[in-house]
Design a binder for these strands. Structure first.
Lengths: 218, 218, 218, 218
DNA sequence: AATGAATGAGAGTTCATTCAT
DNA sequence: CATGAATGAACTCTCATTCAT
């Protein structure tokens, strides 16, 4: 047994969990948690069914591992992205939205929101984890950004928490739609154009302006 | 044998499907289609498992019946609501959003979007039906409303189809969130306030204005 | 209520069991006992499912009623037929076979042997009844006839019990085949011609003759 | 880990299907296809219910496997038997019948005809297969044998196709009877003696002879 | 570490049977 | 006498999980 062989073997061993998680993600996203058969996960990961149980206690644990493994780096990166930017809040928001889509828009990861929403009822703990560590954190950092914009006179006065939700909702909804109903929708849906419209309307709606429109701010 | 006695039985036969559908909706929304056991549906509807099969061919048929039975009236009502309103486009939109929530916000019906999105992959036919007859129709009527606003100089020039999507996305997302992650979210989420913010930002973002903000319209 | 109405009603009431039995026979013969649904029996008999239970304790009882009701008259008739004939044993046998087919060959009754054979294992009591009262009696009367033929020098010496079985086997087999595999058989099978061949060979095989053929009688 | 241990397991995998088929045959023959519970098949085969599905897609597939697995060798053997014999047609027939019973009379295989006849209506494809590949082939080879006997002056002129049917009918009927009503029959039934009588009568009925019996050949 | 044959609890579904009307 | 809505036990089939190898 030459050393390289052993190395390859070792590397394989170290990569197994990741390969299984990747396979599971794709299937969970495509078919839902319950409709996904471990047989299929094993086949797609190129291992036997029994091997799954060497790395994950059971199907639920695999699901949790999928979410936790894939979600955490995304969060880290997002927060770093935000802290790395400078310039006006508007500019930041605009760049964030665009770059978010460029980085995760086409990846399998983008199916996670739909998956978690679908299974939240059956996995309370996981739902709690996701709300706290993903949604909550992103919402908070966005809210802070908007708050800063308001304080600096760039934005109109408004509730930054809801504004943050309203910035994020159409983005998340796009990922959900893409992984559920879009395949059955005959109307064209170009996410980048949709996001541009979103930024345009949202920022126009938020910036301070000599208001002569007659629209009542409630 | 008093007439009322006979009626009680007769009425049950007429009401059974509705009771079953109601029970199924609640469980499907809460746990998903696959994770819902017919045993539970039966118990919640107050009938035996076998009785389900008197009214629905199988589990799938029950699912379709849930969607089709509950969705059609909703569509009719929505379209009528829109046609009944008059006034400026802004006014209309503002009223529509508010009244939509008042009418369906608390009902079980509100769980349908999450349910359909979760199961779209496993029920292509149903997904197609929903996209075409529900989402499509609402989107179209909203897009026309916005188009009118643009033509009459009330709104800025923009793609009305995407604008319609962006009006609806936060609304639908609210219902989805409510039936999935909200129970695990510690932050307060008042839908009416959220919707007010939405209308505020969205309409401010859309109305024609002497733009001196420096925000670039793409 | 005119009397005739009442009469018709009465007659209907008296005929119900017969109609149910007739319907059950057809379905039992066509699909077997277990594969026959009482729903279908009821529908074919033009009554409700519940009505079956007014006349028959359960499905098994209905099966037994079918056999007992339809089989007894056939036996009576057969025995009378035999006693009514006179002439040589050969002549009698020849006529019996031909007339048997003419009288029951095309009727639904002809499906009974296959049905009883198929279900014998699940209905020991019925099987015993059939063996004793149908098969046994017919076999006995035929054996006696052959015995008489032997005694009178018309037939060769042989075991009349087995000879009777051998006369009957191809006849019964024809009914069984007709109700099972014949529909899937591409070769022509004309029962009358087949029976003629049977009589021809059987009687030639049985009659006393100056044996110069070299065939060894065991 | 001794080699034999490993083999024991390996062998089980290879033998499982055969064991299951054997168990299924016995139960199908005794109770019919529908009345046979997979629970029982599993128990008799010494495996769990789930194991059945490792080897057979469903109950129907198991049924077809039973027939096809057991029938093919039988056909091969039968045809070989026939080709191996020589001598006069009478002699051949006599030996065939006797040896057929000796080889399959007591085996479980002998239950197949009853089983197939009972379920023909519910398994048209299988019925067609059996008629074509088993019954048809045997009938044809026998008919040819009789035809040869006629041409060589050994047998009287007759329709060889029907004669073949008449040779086979009492044989097949014996197997059917044995697996259905015989257990409920109090009269003795010795198949070998019955078959001897059959050969005796059948051959006497078929051989060319100076006919002075007065029996009319139709 | 990895396999895959085997398991068995539990799901959806069927249908003979009951009983209030 | 007749109905048919309702039942629930029993079936076939699935699949997450285990364990001898």
């Amino acid at each position: 047994m030459p050393q390289t062989e052993e190395h390859r073997w070792q590397r394989r061993k170290a990569e197994r969990p990741g390969e299984i998680i990747e396979a599971a993600l794709e299937l969970f996203v495509a078919k839902g948690f319950m409709a996904t058969r471990l047989d299929e996960v094993a086949k797609r990961a190129g291992v036997s069914k029994g091997t799954l149980y060497l790395y994950f206690e059971n199907k639920e644990a695999l699901f949790k591992a999928v979410v936790e493994t894939l979600v955490m780096p995304e969060i880290e990166r997002t927060e770093q992205q935000i802290q790395a930017y400078d310039g006006s809040a508007s500019e930041l928001i605009s760049q964030l939205v665009t770059q978010w889509w460029e980085s995760v828009g086409e990846s399998h990861l983008c199916g996670l929101p739909k998956l978690i929403i679908s299974e939240a009822g059956n996995f309370p703990e996981l739902a709690g984890f996701y709300v706290e560590n993903v949604i909550g954190r992103v919402r908070r950092v966005i809210a802070e950004l908007i708050q800063r914009g308001i304080e600096e006179g760039e934005f109109r006065a408004c509730d930054p928490a809801y504004a943050a939700r309203l910035l994020l909702a159409p983005m998340v909804f796009a990922t959900i739609y893409q992984h559920s109903l879009l395949p059955y929708d005959s109307e064209p849906f170009e996410v980048p154009a949709y996001l541009e419209s979103h930024i345009d309307i949202f920022l126009h709606g938020l910036v301070a302006t000599t208001d002569n429109t007659g629209v009542k701010s409630p």
